[in-house]
Computed example of a mutant assay.
Amino acid sequence: MATSASVSNLFVPQARGRVRPLALARWLELTAAMVVMIVLVGGITRLTESGLSITEWNVVSGILPPLSEAAWQAEFAKYQDTPEYRLEAALGGMTLADFKFIFFWEWVHRLIARTVGLAYALPLAWFWLRGAIPAGYKGRLLGLLALGGLQGLFGWLMVQSGLVGDMTDVSHFRLSLHLLTALALLAGLVWTARDMRLVARDPGARPAPLTLGAALVAGVLFVQLLLGAWVAGLNAGHAAYDWPLMNGRLVPSVDWSGGVLWTLTHDPFLLQFLHRWWAWVAVAALVWLARRVRKTDRFASVAVHTAFGIMVLLGIATVMSEVSLWIAAAHQLVGALTVAATVRAMHSDGIARRGARAA
């Protein structure tokens, strides 16, 4: 009977488990760092126009790159059937060596995506079976897993949009959906990690509430990130290379003949203009949030100020460098770090406001 009971316990380890919120927090923070990395590589992939170099999604066989010259030729032949190659790359005389360069970035981007998935799913299963997850958090952790899967699906739908008709680029709407879902995942990981650290200090701690002020700041930042994604998707960074003027004008010339809605979502001059100047609305909102949490979480306050300051400078440098690859990639990287810093400050604001109400 004792042996039978021992075997039975193997299938219900959570009944004898011990919650480990600090270990969960560290795991979530590591996963968040990997998401920041994939955002950076995704930016490089877009800037080098590498996203359409792999025309299929093979979950298992796609892990390895082509390993022979014949395999490389076969992949190149698939790319040569795409509108991007026929209408753009072929005119520039793309060689197999050129193709290998863009293939590398898309392959690395997908490899990191797979790694992030495994780095989240496998430890989640382990923590679950060990009974290490605090009460009330299993649903949220599963939701983050689902969000990660959805982000990958959006990535493939984005690629598909550039493989049809006469499209030489992916849909900027799908690109923004792919990027913003990744940033939402990053936000969820950071917020949940902060909650886990609360539980590590106080097992009875409740999750941090989202305050109205923090939600408004998040909304302002969301608009700026959306505009940035559209600028990237439409290559609108090339609409003007001077700053603060655009082609010598404070307000650029915009063609409204396509209608207000179409112009607001497609005109590269207008979108770069909006991205430039909405940035200052975002700066004002972030300064307000950073000052609001300065006394209760000085690290978050300094992180927010530092992140948005560097992001603005890199944005200006991106324009004036005529969209230098590494400056533009750094701009996207710091954008992701700004999201992480802002979410930490929002979390701290919720804890502080709740404490103030209780007092």
Rank of each mutant, 00 (worst) to 15 (best):
P244I: 06
S301H: 08
L141P: 03
F11Q: 10
W277D: 04
Q14C: 14
L185W: 02
A74H: 08
G17M: 12
T211P: 10
V19Y: 08
R357Q: 13
M346Y: 01
I63T: 14
P13M: 09
I54L: 14
H178N: 11
V190E: 01
P134Q: 07
P209H: 07
G233N: 10
T115P: 05
T3F: 12
F273V: 10
S50V: 10
V170F: 07
A284C: 03
V293Q: 04
F222P: 13
A239G: 06
T318K: 00
H347T: 12
V35C: 06
A205E: 13
L157W: 11
L234W: 04
W243G: 07
D242K: 08
A328C: 00
E322S: 01
G228Q: 05
R130M: 14
L210N: 11
D166I: 11
A303S: 01
L180G: 05
R194T: 12
R291L: 08
L337Y: 00
V251G: 09
Q14P: 09
T168F: 03
F104Q: 02
Q160F: 02
L226Y: 14
N247C: 04
A240E: 02
R130P: 10
D202G: 05
G165N: 08
R20K: 14
L124Y: 03
Y120Q: 05
T55A: 06
G93Q: 12
L250T: 15
E88K: 15
L271E: 01
A121F: 09
A284D: 05
R206D: 10
S61N: 15
I310M: 00
A214R: 02
L111E: 06
G350V: 08
L145K: 04
A218L: 13
V170Y: 07
W288L: 11
H331M: 00
L261H: 04
G152E: 09
G258S: 05
L163P: 14
